[in-house]
């Protein structure tokens, strides 16, 4: 089996109970590749995003901790309270990817160096790209197939 298919099947098997959990690391062929991939630099005093807007769909925040303490990165809803997505355990020098399916809307991003307090926040906007949010194409077909064979 090709490596890509193997990995997709492994992921689907792991998260079958949470059927929408698998997201492509590199959404190949999608026009949103560049815009959906964002870089975040979290230092002791700053939280710098490569862009303040992104088109709806699969977003990948590549979060790098350039500080000297542990940090966390959150994507919060517009109210600044509800957690939409987070990545934790970001030790100094590490880069971790936060992958999320983002519908259009207003969000707040937050870096939390030292893991306490309000963190460093800024507004983030997801524009409507027209593409439906969630697994599509090959992955969706595989998921449906896996679900069907799981049920029978």
């Amino acid at each position: 089996m090709p490596r890509a298919a193997l990995s997709a099947v492994a992921c689907a098997a792991l998260v079958l109970p949470f059927a929408t959990g698998c997201v492509a690391n590199t959404p190949a062929g999608s026009p949103a590749v560049g815009a959906g991939a964002l870089k975040v630099d979290s230092s002791a005093t700053a939280c710098t995003l490569s862009a303040a807007t992104a088109p709806s769909g699969t977003l990948t925040f590549s979060v790098t901790n350039s500080g000297s303490d542990m940090t966390e990165f959150y994507v919060l809803a517009a109210d600044g309270l509800r957690v939409v997505a987070e990545v934790e355990n970001l030790g100094p020098g590490l880069t971790r990817d936060l992958v999320m399916q983002a519908p259009p809307g207003a969000y707040v991003t937050q870096c939390k160096p030292g893991m306490v307090g309000e963190g460093i926040r800024s507004d983030f906007t997801v524009t409507d790209s027209g593409t439906p949010v969630g697994p599509t194409g090959h992955a969706a077909a595989q998921l449906a197939e896996a679900e069907e064979s799981y049920a029978s």
């Binding site: 490596r3 890509a4 990995s7 997709a8 492994a10 992921c11 792991l14 998260v15 109970p17 949470f18 929408t20 959990g21 698998c22 997201v23 492509a24 690391n25 590199t26 990948t60 939409v84 997505a85 987070e86 990545v87 990817d97 936060l98 992958v99 999320m100 399916q101 992955a139």
Partner: peptide, 18 residues
Amino acid sequence: AALTFGPQGLSFEAQEAI
């Protein structure tokens, strides 16, 4: 390893649910 290096990642919700 599969989720880090492979073509498929895991969404935040799925990770929390697991």
